[in-house]
Amino acid sequence: MIQIKILPFNPFQCNCYVLWVETKEAIIVDPSFSSEQEYQVIAKLLQSEGLSLKGVYNTHCHFDHCFGAPFLKEHHQMDYAAHKDGIQFTENATKQAAVYGMQIAEILPPQIFIDEGESIKFGNSELEILNTPGHADGSLCFVSHSDKFVITGDVLFRESIGRTDLPTGDLDVLLASINNKLFQLPGDFVVYPGHGPQSSIAHEQANNPFLHFGEVH
């Protein structure tokens, strides 16, 4: 069984997920910790649970989801994995952050590329990778069929959807990703989003005000 710890970090309260299994092998999804103090929360969790970090994966490469890359490189000699189409966002991260009045260091690009049709394996567990563009090119979702959850990044939130007014955002493409990929999952699957509280597929199908059989209303 996969254990999950949700840790909101940085001014955008971006959810960082630490997942681990009985073998104590762990992965991080969306390393959003933006300071040494925030990184120490991760370090103390790994130490207290006796975890061995095996990989780091990003749902997409917007800067608020990638802040932790330098800390992982420094403390674990570890690169993060993401879809290759996300590199453009790491290249423009400082300009994008400036739009929000933030001055940030350059964001390290992913060095490992992943895509739909592959899976993330740690211990005896695995996550299926879904390609779900619309919020941003290179957006991915990670599905555990055995533990019945999906990590959706900024594609689907509790009673909301990802914004589409940023570069490469496309509402029609986003709705197709949600309806054709995420809403094909069973209703009892838990939704773990990039920001905010968790939900479920059934709850979003019934209550998301932005979605109704693929139509916006």
Results as ranks from 00 to 15, higher is better:
148 K>V: 13
47 Q>H: 13
156 L>V: 01
81 A>G: 08
178 I>M: 12
67 F>C: 00
92 N>V: 09
207 N>L: 15
204 E>D: 15
100 Y>D: 15
18 V>T: 13
211 L>W: 00
148 K>S: 11
155 V>G: 06
10 N>M: 11
14 C>I: 13
67 F>M: 07
204 E>W: 06
158 R>W: 11
36 E>T: 15
120 I>S: 07
203 H>W: 15
49 E>S: 07
72 L>W: 00
201 I>D: 01
14 C>V: 13
19 L>M: 10
5 K>W: 12
94 T>K: 11
153 G>Y: 07
77 Q>N: 13
95 K>T: 15
125 S>C: 12
118 E>G: 08
24 K>G: 08
180 N>W: 10
128 E>Y: 02
97 A>M: 08
152 T>I: 06
97 A>G: 08
41 V>P: 01
164 T>H: 10
133 P>Q: 05
155 V>I: 12
46 L>D: 02
19 L>E: 05
159 E>S: 11
146 S>P: 10
36 E>L: 14
114 I>F: 03
48 S>K: 14
132 T>R: 05
66 C>D: 02
17 Y>C: 01
157 F>T: 05
65 H>I: 00
192 Y>Q: 03
76 H>G: 09
64 D>F: 13
170 D>Y: 04
55 G>V: 10
212 H>T: 09
150 V>A: 03
67 F>E: 07
183 F>S: 07
138 G>I: 02
98 A>F: 12
56 V>I: 06
146 S>F: 09
207 N>F: 14
173 V>K: 07
172 D>R: 10
53 L>M: 12
11 P>A: 05
175 L>A: 10
16 C>P: 08
94 T>R: 14
67 F>A: 05
149 F>D: 01
60 H>W: 06
190 V>E: 07
169 G>M: 06
106 E>D: 15
163 R>V: 12
